[in-house]
Amino acid sequence: MGLGRAAKESISNAVNFLPDRCNYPGSKAQVTNRIHTEYIKAGHVIELENVGYSYGGGELLSDVSVQLIPGSFHFLTGPSGSGKSTLLKLCYGALTPTTGRVRAFEADMRDLDRDQMAMLRRRIGVVHQDCRFLDHLPLADNIALPLTVSGPDASQEGSDLKELMQWVGLSERAHALPPELSGGERQRAALARAVIMSPDVILADEPTGNVDWEMSQRLLQLLVELNRMGKTILIASHDLALIRAAKSQVPVRVLRISDRRLQLAGADL
């Protein structure tokens, strides 16, 4: 399975970051763990510091602090309406915190102008719960959209698209319109679109919410592989089986939103 030139560069960057990769024998997971350790010295991908968010007079999140280390794999759990999607939106700047601050790649999001925010979002791949495609464009164009909007330089990496669609098993559906896709196909397409720019971090909001068990395992496998390539992953999900399946493959940190606050989940998960 390949990810194309952009993704390959990212993997290469991640591995090259190690002082001497020859000294890191072992499984991919072990290498990833060491990458985490080294990246910690370089700072956080996304950092929320005492973040609060209120909407319509009610407080949804209060005093939330979390740091996403490069190459880490986090799950965000909590009951429906607890603020999981809100927290993800805060992470990619779709919402502005009422209190506290959000930093992404060492930059305080409050200090970014609109162009800078757009550039920052190119480094964050987002898989929305409802996927959100442009229904008038064929699937291939939808997946390539981040390349398209990034200009001709990024679009030259067009050969990535074919490999990527093959990777998510959608090669045969390249010309289909989004409304013609099944739930699983939409989720896989959303994931493909999220990673086509080879972002540093992938945020996924209930990525397996509308698919069966088999498909959810397949999607998880894609995310695990991305994590092994050095991508930082944050998945909002209340699917405990999915979390357990992930924990069996990569080091996973589980966060739980409870009573508007973020807590580290217990070992029962």
Partner: peptide, 16 residues
């Protein structure tokens, strides 16, 4: 509006 929202979220600049 939804198209614009999607474009903004994937990193399209206002000018584009």
């Amino acid at each position: 509006a939804q198209v614009i929202e999607v474009l903004r979220l994937i990193g399209a600049r206002d000018r584009y």
